[in-house]
Amino acid sequence: MVGEELTEQETALYDRQIRVWGADAQRRLSKSHILVYGMKGTITEFCKNIVLAGVGSLTLVDDRAVTEEALSANFLMPPDENVCSGKTLAELCRDSLNEFNPMVRVSVEKGDLTSFGVEFFDKFDVVVISFCSLATKKLINERCRKLSKRVSFYTVDCRDCCGEIFVDLQKYNYAMKRLDETTECELQYPSFQEAISVPWRSLPRKVSKLYFAMRVIERFEEAEGRKPGEICIEDLPAVLKLKKEICEAQSLNESHIPNALLERLVTGTREFPPVCAIIGGILGQEVIKAISGKGDPLKNFFFFDSVDGKGIIEDISDPTPKR
């Protein structure tokens, strides 16, 4: 048992989920602090899930103004100019999220995510960023890793009918329960930089095609100086050319990255609400697992494509880790 007991109000509200993960996990949740960046559909789903679950606090960062695109997969904002004008995405989402669960403190931090120093991240147990450039992903991940305590780091992206989650829990110990047996496990996670640097040749043959495709898109946007999602069908030839180059450099057969998949990712940059719900749900579960210490956390990528309907975990890490 850790900390003080749950209040009567908490026990009544969280009854059904305490039956899933126990009172102990619920107490840990209520002491955790989460930071999210990028208030689009997937992050909105994630925020809903963890606010309902009863985390201690949630901090939102997103200074952008409301656009129709931002509204398209977001159920936290009314499509009403009178309500939306003059407020940032984060502020509008905060107003709604606050109503979901009065026991969770939801607040907004203004400013550019990349300008926050290492000490800023020290206030949080979990950092989740969405729709960030390759450079930003690496940067924020490294800042989280510089802290003495563990700050769990996640990136999430949804494009067209596909979604990707990356997880970095650094060093993570947990009890794996199978039937009556409990095994103590230790997982060593690579950083985002380390993971994507693993030579493609050395990955298992069956790695999700989405993994490769997302890396190509990421590299393309980086090279062209685009914001995430600033890509369209006219870019396809250049994307395919880049794919060819990378595959040659990595000695990977080009068939591992189907052109049709790249075409979908290039044209369907908008989020697809059912995929937001699925990816936001898986991400919510993973964050709850990491905070509560209950359940097997996924290592270290998750992919979903509604075209084949599979939700797959891939472990992309150096096969010969330093022991």
Binding site: Q17, V20, N49, L52, A53, V275, G309
Partner: peptide, 22 residues
């Protein structure tokens, strides 16, 4: 006969339902 229930699984299942409904 209370069944354990969490928001995340319901959200995922709802997403899957919409995909099949389409």
């Amino acid at each position: 006969n209370i069944v354990h229930a969490v928001a995340t699984t319901n959200a995922i299942v709802a997403g899957l339902i919409v995909i099949e409904a389409i």
